[in-house]
Design a protein around this nucleic acid. Structure first.
Lengths: 194, 194
DNA sequence: CGCTTTTATTGAACGATGTTCAATTGAATA
DNA sequence: TATTCAATTGAACATCGTTCAATAAAAGCG
């Protein structure tokens, strides 16, 4: 069989990454296989290699769209009054992680093979997220130099990521039950010097 | 063939996890396969299943020993004068990550299958590391309640983890080149309120 | 409309993976 | 020496990512 054209090429690519995202959000990275995506959209495994370079490529695409979704959520939170933004942003971040734990995990669980780099469009997407947060919190860091602000934002960002990662893999609960959100708020407060 | 007894059972188990660690530190989680570990120690693949429940078990064992090694390094740094400990601990942490990037990555890159939990001995090992840091930095947090100290330490811990993770997977370098160590120091300073 | 060209799609094939388990064989025991 | 025991094997199974010659359907053309 050939040239079925049940779907336009772009449409088919979307269909495939949607199917991949569905599988990943249900079963995580471990359950995401080429054959299962193909089966889900009713095509042969080989077809996916016309749409994506390989499975890693498909995963990176899905991760990219996860970053986009996170951006939407954070942008919404950034509309709050400047003094409220730290709390709102942290809440939005953890809401996002909790609503899509497996997709969010895949963002960091997946590693490209040694020597391969993320595609060119990925890093700007990440930088845009950071810029969004930096702009939202700018009014609260007016006494800081540009470099200092940059460092604060990146540290906050990485810190929230660390808290969420350990929470999701349940490597955070030790003796006492520690709420990830509270740690997030604590982190942001201290990083903003309040 | 059977009962070769070239090695005592415990000895063989050590041999296998050493081989696994060697492979992982050279090629990361992706290169760590049952067959390659078996080949490296001169046994058949099936033999590994007498020593470990499965590949996940072997990985968790290696991760456990990585935590131990990190503990040794941090304990050494904690011997410094109380005021120097924040800097020394951060330096020790990043030294460790940079000296074993792939082993350290495996600590967080690896996820057990859905529903499976880390073994009972793993969580205490993690808690001991946190306790070490908490004790070392206790003198610098005397104005804090026990709960507050706990939260500060865990947040620092998760934050360092986040910074290192993003740095190792090169998702930290955005516009300007940001040194992970400096971010680590910044984080710890602010979390300790200095 | 028929013929040719193009190309999207297939699915068998390859090598590699984790895991199982009956068979084997060396050591320990009697 | 004969028997029991258990450590070790390696073939087998299902699955994986990936490739690619074959194919069939659409598009182009006379």
């Amino acid at each position: 069989m050939a040239r079925r054209s049940d779907h336009a090429p772009d449409e088919l690519k979307r269909l495939a990454s949607d199917a991949g995202r569905a599988i990943a959000s249900e079963e995580g990275l471990r359950g995401l296989t080429v054959r299962r995506v193909a089966e889900r959209i009713g095509y042969a495994p080989g077809t996916l290699y016309n749409l994506f370079a390989n499975l890693d490529d498909l995963i990176v695409q899905i991760n990219g769209s996860t970053l986009d979704a996170l951006g939407v959520v954070l942008a919404e939170a950034a509309k709050a009054d400047p003094e409220d933004r730290p709390r709102k942003l942290v809440e939005a971040y953890f809401d996002f992680v909790e609503s899509r734990p497996r997709l969010w995990s895949m963002l960091f669980e997946h590693r490209l093979p040694e020597g391969e780099d993320l595609p060119d469009w990925y890093r700007p997407k990440l930088a845009a997220l950071l810029a969004l947060v930096a702009e939202a919190l700018g009014p609260l860091m007016q006494d800081q130099t540009f470099e200092a602000r940059q460092a604060i934002i990146v540290t906050m960002w990485a810190g929230l990521h660390g808290i969420s990662t350990l929470a999701v893999s349940s490597k955070l609960t030790l003796v006492a039950e520690t709420d990830p959100r509270q740690l997030g708020h604590l982190l942001v407060q201290r990083m903003l010097g309040r």
